[in-house]
Amino acid sequence: MHELIAAPYLDTFLLVRPGSPKAVRLPFAEYSWLTRAADTDGDCPTWLSNVTRRTWGVSLTGRRLRQAVAVRPPSPLRYGRASYELNLGCNYDCEHCYLGLKEFSGLEWPERERLLYAIQAAGVLWLQLTGGEPMIDRLFPETYQRAHELGMLVEILTNGSRLAAPKSLALLTRHRPNKITLSVYGATAEAYDGLTRRRGAHHMFMKGLNAAHEAELPVDLALIITRRNAHEADAMRALADRYGLPYREYTHMSPTIYGGAETLASQAPDHLTDRDPFRGCNAGHTFFHVDPHGMASMCKVGRDKAIPLITEGVEGLARLGGMADSLMLRTGGCTGCQLSGTCRVCRPLAKLYQEAKAPLNRYCQHAETRS
């Protein structure tokens, strides 16, 4: 199995290593040489071994190129990143979850494998596996391993409840993920189990966190701060510091993907942080999202228009940019707003808030001005 990946990424060429944040920009000449040599049985060149030794402390001297480096061919599209929801099912029932109905449904393996090949053919180098809870999906091991074999850097978004399972640890240490992002729902069992509505959830999380930490897997934390656990915010930060892990805080709860408002009651108003003004994003142009049934949309929020990726493949994705642009237009409740240039949420997210009949101050910083 390869240790490194050489791949086009947007307008450049990169050499990366799964599990490492470091990347090396490859000149076009060196990337072209690797693409020509990838199908031969030759050794890694000296210049490549020198680069990997300096960057990662890895020597490729005497190694076969085809065994050490996965060389990705160019793609007709410029997609560098994607996310894939394996399944909306979850072993938790979190109060704040934006998925709403957590249905256990998804693709069988032949279709899922075709989907992964299509994602690779779109040029995706960074692939995020999410859910629901991706690691309880019965095809998670096959999906993760095939994505890794196809030369993608895989990030797993997980609640950590299955990380300590021996088979999971064996898979992730054998084929290292680029990152594992663990959601933190509280610092104590009372708050954690209360938010997830699952007794013993905090114990499973801590067991998974300890197992990943001991295995030296690349972990960071997503601190979910809600009305139920806000009093433990400092303790959640202290947990991250104790393990020496980077973290981000999430305080804004979104409506469900169906426009439901049931999640909004979990928000802790006193802990909301100001969002930066929305300046646009590349969703649909250099990034896309795939749901459990293989429907590709601009992102996890903007699902109104989607492409059946399995049947249409890369050719279908060529339409996604235009679809994304149409969804980003300000329509409905934002029509005519003279202050829209400094809004702090994108149009698809504002639409969900509007459908949920959320208070204006939940998503629009101009609530007082407009009212």
Rank of each mutant, 00 (worst) to 15 (best):
107 L>D: 00
224 I>G: 01
83 S>Y: 03
238 A>W: 07
227 R>H: 03
358 A>R: 03
269 P>C: 13
363 Y>P: 01
266 S>Q: 14
366 H>I: 08
353 Y>Q: 02
330 R>W: 14
159 N>K: 05
122 A>V: 13
115 L>C: 05
45 P>T: 06
179 K>Q: 10
22 K>T: 07
283 A>S: 15
207 K>T: 11
63 R>P: 04
118 A>N: 07
52 T>K: 03
196 T>G: 06
39 D>V: 08
19 G>Q: 01
77 L>H: 03
154 V>Y: 05
31 Y>H: 04
235 A>K: 13
347 R>F: 15
42 G>P: 04
300 K>E: 15
57 G>C: 12
333 G>A: 11
58 V>P: 09
66 R>H: 15
2 H>T: 04
176 R>Y: 01
48 L>Q: 03
314 V>P: 02
318 A>Q: 02
99 L>F: 12
310 I>L: 14
48 L>K: 02
112 R>E: 08
188 T>N: 05
235 A>W: 08
248 R>F: 11
356 A>Y: 00
218 P>S: 02
235 A>D: 14
182 L>T: 00
111 E>G: 06
84 Y>C: 06
37 A>H: 08
63 R>S: 14
241 D>T: 09
186 G>F: 08
269 P>A: 07
348 P>V: 04
47 W>Q: 00
28 F>M: 12
23 A>L: 13
76 P>N: 08
26 L>M: 10
33 W>D: 12
318 A>R: 14
329 L>C: 13
117 Y>Q: 13
12 T>E: 06
121 A>E: 07
76 P>I: 09
299 C>T: 03
314 V>G: 08
147 A>N: 06
76 P>M: 07
213 H>S: 10
171 L>G: 01
70 A>F: 12
276 D>M: 11
343 C>A: 13
